[in-house]
Write a protein that binds this DNA or RNA. Structure first.
Lengths: 244, 244
DNA sequence: GGAGCCCTTTGATCCACATCAATACGATTT
DNA sequence: AAATCGTATTGATGTGGATCAAAGGGCTCC
């Protein structure tokens, strides 16, 4: 039985059961009672300032994180200094799954803007997901989705040309903003050209030139980080217009 | 002398509890009683001939597969015909995790040689892993390992040059053969130059040339698909020898 | 509100890998 | 043992994106 103990307003507002991201996040598919159980599990929240690390490669793995506000990038860094951005994460998405396998994180997670995450202690998540079938299943889906996403990135990096990569990136961003209730056609990128380039396996100059060419062709209006997509079918055409 | 209980020799030989791959596979970390429970779950086995599909993109997702013998590649194919090999899998490794998220497979799994897999019905795996903590945890580790592996491939595709990619590939293969009790320095590749190239984001000619250059430099002895690694530190040096 | 700095854009040149092409090799079939 | 076919090697040439370089914008932080 749960207590009658007074709960502060802040706690109520930040619980999964009250969170408007729950359709995108771990609670998806749970019934109200189950979401309440999840509420108890999500112990604390953490604010991360822009450019700060949520975790670093090598940090002991204890929790996964659900993004409540803001956005992140993850990257891997080689000894020789080369780095590769492995993903950009938005609200409702889960960070830290890389850490499960080796009991320590294997990449860095860095806030692209001032952000806030829900801390989900992993051993407790495993415990609860042994009891709550729908939670277990949703968690497995989230991990699997990450694998599928990664395969898409491999396809992009392994067999697309620069403009195709950028078109795919923009369409993906658009789709994710849409899922969060924002405009599909107008958004603000939180990452730099250099970070986009790293993610897409291109140099920042190449990214910039591709943006300019898209602009010249009337596909998008680019003003620094502010993007307006003017011709979604046109962007899709770039993706499929490949002479195999 | 065989058991008094009438169990066929085939069944005994193919159960997890008797399988010499169990340290590499799903049973890792389970105690004997728990492995027996897993035995019951792994209902059937399936033989797949060389070049045949274990599953195709779009197939309904019902099970994951543990490789008992042989090897596979997975690939994704775009509408325009371009394809990308997303991985090569060896004995003890698990296939099909991509299917969980969308309830259907999102890539193709094709046998590189005559192979055999254990069929693990997914809903029963979820059920059992709700009861067996160590199984749950091992399964999560396997999924996470796949994510980490994918990040490594992204690094490779996004920021390495051709020879670095091939060196990384060879070292990875060597390490995986070693883990299976084979020679670290001498092995037989089951995939073609074209498949290696697709995986590494290179054309087959580039792969072939890189092999030749490694041979000229005395790093490996290449005879078609038979590889002998002569200078492992040398290969590692190629990987780190990058002027950042 | 101004100084400084980071980020972005654009141009000129270079180079690693792709592409095109021909030959050689090896396994399988007959 | 010859014929066939998929696979691999090697050479010549082309090109997309990297690199080098410079200038222009727009934040951020005093």
């Amino acid at each position: 039985m749960k207590s009658v103990v007074p709960i502060t307003a802040v706690e109520i507002k930040t619980a999964c059961s009250q969170c408007n991201l729950r359709e995108l996040c771990l609670p998806f598919g749970l019934d109200p009672r189950e979401v309440n159980q999840l509420d108890e599990l999500v112990g604390s929240r953490r604010k991360i300032k822009r450019q700060q690390h949520l975790y670093r490669s090598g940090d002991p793995f204890e929790a996964i994180y659900a993004i409540r506000a803001g956005s992140f990038k993850t990257d891997v860094i080689l000894e020789d200094g080369r780095d590769q951005v492995t993903g950009f994460q938005m609200t409702g998405e889960v960070l830290g799954l890389d850490g499960i396998s080796g009991e320590q994180h294997s990449c860095n997670a860095i806030a692209l803007e001032d952000s806030e995450v829900c801390v989900i202690p992993f051993s407790r998540l495993e415990e609860l997901s042994r009891q709550v079938e729908s939670l277990q299943h949703q968690f497995h889906k989230i991990m699997s989705r990450e694998i599928v996403r990664d395969h898409g990135v491999m396809m992009l990096l392994g067999s697309m040309r620069a403009e195709e990569r950028l078109a795919a990136f923009l369409l993906n961003m658009s789709q994710r903003f849409t899922a969060r209730g924002f405009s599909p056609s107008e958004f603000h990128l939180r990452m730099t050209r250099d970070e986009i380039g790293s993610y897409l396996g291109l140099k920042l100059e190449t990214v910039s030139r591709a943006f300019s060419r898209f602009q010249d062709e009337g596909l998008v209006a680019v003003q620094q980080k502010h993007i307006r997509i003017l011709d979604t079918p046109g962007l899709k055409r770039i993706l499929s217009h490949h002479a195999a």
